[in-house]
Design a protein around this nucleic acid. Sequence first.
DNA 1: CCAGCAGCCTGAAAGC
DNA 2: TGCTTTCAGGCTGCTG
Length: 273
Amino acid sequence: MPELPEVETVRRELDPRVRGRKVLEAGSHPSAKFVPAVDTIGASLTHADRRGKFLLLPLDDARELVIHLGMTGKLSFSDTPADPEDPYLRAWWRLAENHTAPEQTLRFHDVRRFGRIRVVPAGDYSSIPTLANAGPEPWDPVLTPQLFHSLIKKSKRAIKTQLLSQRPIAGVGNIYADEALWAAQINPKVTRLGLDRAGMLLEELRDVLEKGVENGGTTLRDYRNVDGGTGENQHSLVAYGRGGQPCLRCDSTLTSAVLDARTTVWCPNCQRR
DNA sequence: CCAGCAGCCTGAAAGC
DNA sequence: TGCTTTCAGGCTGCTG
């Protein structure tokens, strides 16, 4: 489940490898989720950017290629053309050579087809609601504890639900939400947070996301970087996936329950309501 | 405008 | 052993 650290890892690898490369040819799976990939033919990629969990690849014609990896999306490069026999290949772009690489194919694999590809006018995300409504990036200096607190106050939903909505902050998914709530000792079902506790949560969110990026992302099963390698952050998880195991802070048994159709793990003792 | 929820997807793991 | 069910979950789009 690629979240900000995984998508950022991919972006960093992608950036030098897409700069200035023209799309010579492109193809896609027939699903409307992937067909827009071919709209890039003839345009050149300028660089790789990211907003929350969305990869943004600006084109040189005032448009942007937007890629969401969904649950199982993977991007990779190969020197050979796309293999039509590959059952999980959802889109591909034949890229012209640039000063660092020969002509290559950028491939988008996505077993479960939760991913999505769009081409939009540069900066116009009105057709992608989650992106259009996304809150600030975690390290955006405008994201003060006061702003974070006021964004949370706009909704009466559980804090975990709010984090997953992308509205108070962009890029947080199920893994890093549970990790940050554990670290901040905040119960995921809490619906109101004071300024101090909101500030603590923001600090822990930044911390777990930063460590996730440093570790090259979390690979539980599917996530791979552009070179096909795994991340290492799965070895640092203290809450996610540890339901029934002892809390590393107080030794109580971690609770696992479904909240908003997602498995949520927290400590019933040190993350009290 | 927001909350709530079905639906999208398929392989792996668990259950029978 | 082999078939069936459950599980993983980010986002969209519909309904109230």
